[in-house]
Amino acid sequence: MERFEPTIVAFVCNWCTYTAADLAGTARMIQSPNVRLVRMMCTGMVDPKYVLKALLGGADAVLISGCHPGDCHYINGNYKARRRVKLLKEILTGFGVDERRVKLTWVGASEGNEFAETVNELVEDIRELGPGETSRMMVI
């Protein structure tokens, strides 16, 4: 059987995780090509609608990643993001969406290796879970 290739959308903040992704690239850290980045200024900018839209649009998982607590370029955007992700997880898991399909992590600007690992682990996790339901749904 053909290996399942998940589609994953990642909302990452410009100051930390996007920078870490650049660093991972510069250091040629091999990553699964399944994760596609959307550059945001801060995780605090990630409207829950974006996560929903990505999932309904066929993403098998969504990653939100920003600066570590206390390091947010905008002081505390990441704390607001954490509450919103908490809420989304509560809502979505009730509809059978596995918790791992909405992932929030902190990856600092210097953590290129951490970024590559996060990507690869997430892809493996989702590969294990199989395709998200939405990729086959006609109702969005």
Partner: peptide, 21 residues
């Protein structure tokens, strides 16, 4: 085209999930 069919009106799940959030 993605799945060969699309329920119209669209954004129904999206609306209710957003309203829930």
């Amino acid at each position: 085209r993605k799945n060969g069919q699309l329920r119209m009106p669209t954004d129904t799940l999206f609306f209710h999930l957003t309203r829930l959030s």
